[in-house]
Amino acid sequence: MEGRRGVAIALLSTVVFLVVVGVAITHSPGWHEIRRTFFDWSEFKSSFPEIARAFLLNCKIFSISECFILAFALLLAVLRSLPGPVFFPLRALAVVYADFFRGVPTILVIALLGFGAPALQVSGVPTSTTFWGIVSLVLVYSAYVSEVYRAGIDSVHPSQEAAARSLGLTRGQTLRKVILPQAVRRVIPPLLNDFIGLQKDTALVGTLGAIEAFQQASIDSAATFHYTPYLAAAVLFVAITIPLARFTDWLIARDRRRRQAQGMHA
């Protein structure tokens, strides 16, 4: 009964909230104009197919970037966890890399590489804006994701390494078979969080001129003086990122349940 009452209260408060917000917006002085430019159903219908087609490029950029990010970031994280004075230069390099690419706005990296690299006109250097957009996203997101991996590696207790090394496993074997499998499992939820950010940031590649969803919406909008196409693009992004976000929440909750179950066992 408690549960059903809770649901009823939640439902009621949500409805009241939405009505209040709705009334406030629709009674604002500029509402008529906003409705005409942002919420035009026929405009939405006519622009949607083309924007959806352009959105496939976002998905392509996302999937290709993601594969490279997962691998490159892991390499960076492993470099940073190498022990001993011999590896200082590699560790330092990984630190500088992470600091730099987390510090520079993504859109700047995309502009610098996307406009700069092709302008070099070196033969063999690709001139595709999509290519350089992907390179930029890989560079920037690898810095973030390597930090996530590193947190995972640090969270594996040193006794696990001691146990593996005491059995005669080499440092590499220990990392591959004992440390990384545990580390990666623990950071899957935060990794997915970064994926959501990446999926959104694929829109930044549009600033180079690649016709992805946002760029297509801009073109439509400029032609019709309507903002409705942006809404269509937003709907497409949300359709991908919200399920990802819910999936991440579900994984985090499952992880917590498992750890609690383990805690009770120990």
């Binding site: 006794s159 696990q160 001691a162 146990a163 499998p181 499992r185």
Partner: peptide
């Protein structure tokens, strides 16, 4: 070791 240190995965 005292704490077993088995590989949990």
């Amino acid at each position: 070791f005292q704490a077993f240190n088995l590989f949990p995965h």
